[in-house]
Design a protein around this nucleic acid. Structure first.
Lengths: 255, 255
DNA sequence: CTAGTTATATGATTTAGATCATAGTGAAAT
DNA sequence: ATTTCACTATGATCTAAATCATATAACTAG
């Protein structure tokens, strides 16, 4: 019911977007942009409690990559080579079942990590895909593990982030079992609103994959919300008009 | 689909039950039973990679508590004071939604932890209840955090356990969204069988709370399995007769 | 030993939401 | 500018599983 935005509770200092000027190059080692990446790591709860010098050290291990809309950052099942933090844009991570069903695991933006725990295992648990123009910072697995070992607080941070993340998923399961589709959809809309503000860049299909329903039902419910004046929308974009009503619908679905 | 037993992937050295002789006392500090508790902590993946002396040290911080069938070990929402590992018996942890729906989070037995991550937060995420006669070992929060700080490998272990646990929950969500109730029920029966062997001590209601369905449907499906000779059962007990068939039903539900 | 409580059993009814099917629509591409 | 493709829209149908309802069996507490 009160499970927070699917950012795993990670990173979210709002209105904190840094201007970056990186065009043409697919990958590059930061020099002039070190300041930018320091801001990203500072915003990342994984590194909470580290001082400026330590954040600087971490940033110096990172390099930057950009991805165009639709491009994949890594795939479920691949062995993980990098740790990723989002610097710019929106990334979704999702899982696919053997029957082809998709569920979205997380909608990540500035300061959110994509795979905090995967580097401790053999495989990526999820697939990460750019929703719009995206820049991520990456740290080599080896370096990342070195840093975790050097600064034990990082592991502690991850434990508490993952713990909350797990609890979030239990809440999601409770909703899946107990709430109506409409409630769930409104719930996710509200969560996304809390994280991203009134304008959401996602399709009904993606919303369906968050709420665990079908594209058709997602479309139907959103049409209803539109008629009721709670949202407006265009292709791939949803604008929240009446947050209060949305929130109330997330609690008690009025048929 | 292949998500493992709800023990969070933690602890499971089978046929490893230690005889304990502790009657009458509700709590006591181990002396003669130190050996017993060392075995428990050795079986607990949270402490993997620690040597015998270190395990000994950990065990020396622990004390033992027993709970009768139905008794609560801790409650969702309470501030956590202890870290718990199961020494004997079966404990279920579960969550309740605002509408009163239950989901079982974990069925824990010998060597499984009950709240690996809660001690890093403010509240217990779940409620823990004894399913039968239970003995747990507990370590004071302060001592536990001291140990985690002293032996960084513990935090690393927890990270990888929680990471796997999270992935398990994603799989559970995928199943909830994509598979039939029969498949899910068979799936959980099979997982429980893998962990506990042919005899399972749980009610249809508890099984329903694992699979995210109602008690009635759980009863109906189990009746069917009974007629088909796949299980036999008595009150609060299920005996797996045909594992192969069960496994196949978990994959493709036959009508 | 009996009453009370908890688990199992099954039948009848309802319904939310999936599924199938077809069509319109805006954006991007060549 | 018209073809293409990915989104949105909506209608018709179907069904798995929830809900409601009632009964019996088994355990356990007084």
């Amino acid at each position: 019911m009160i499970y927070c935005l699917l950012g795993g509770g990670e990173g979210l200092r709002k209105g904190f977007i840094k201007r970056v000027a990186l065009k043409g190059m697919e990958k590059f080692n930061l020099k002039g942009d070190l300041n930018t990446s320091i801001e990203v790591f500072k915003a990342c709860p994984t590194f909470a409690g580290l001082n400026r010098d330590q954040i600087y050290e971490i940033a110096s291990f990172s390099s930057s990559h950009r991805f165009k809309k639709g491009e994949y950052i890594f795939h479920q099942g691949d062995p993980p080579h990098f740790f990723y933090v989002v610097q710019k844009g929106i990334v979704k991570t999702f899982k696919v079942s053997s029957h082809g069903k998709h569920i979205i695991v997380k909608i990540a933006s500035f300061g959110d990590t994509l795979n905090a725990s995967a580097l401790f295992g053999e495989r990526h648990f999820v697939t990460a895909q750019a929703i719009d123009e995206v820049v991520v910072l990456s740290i080599k697995k080896k370096d990342y593990l070195f840093l975790v070992e050097k600064y034990p607080i990082i592991a502690m941070n991850i434990v508490s982030i993952l713990g909350k993340g797990l609890d979030n998923e239990y809440e999601r399961i409770l909703d899946l079992v107990g709430e109506t589709v409409e409630q769930r959809l409104c719930h996710f809309l509200y969560m996304l609103f809390s994280k991203f503000g009134t304008t959401l860049l996602l399709t009904r299909e993606e919303l369906a994959e968050l709420a665990g329903t079908t594209t058709e039902t997602s479309i139907r419910v959103l049409s209803k919300l539109k008629s009721a004046g709670i949202i407006s929308s265009s292709r791939g974009k949803i604008i929240i008009l009446d947050q209060a009503k949305l929130q109330s619908l997330a609690q008690h679905s009025h048929q």
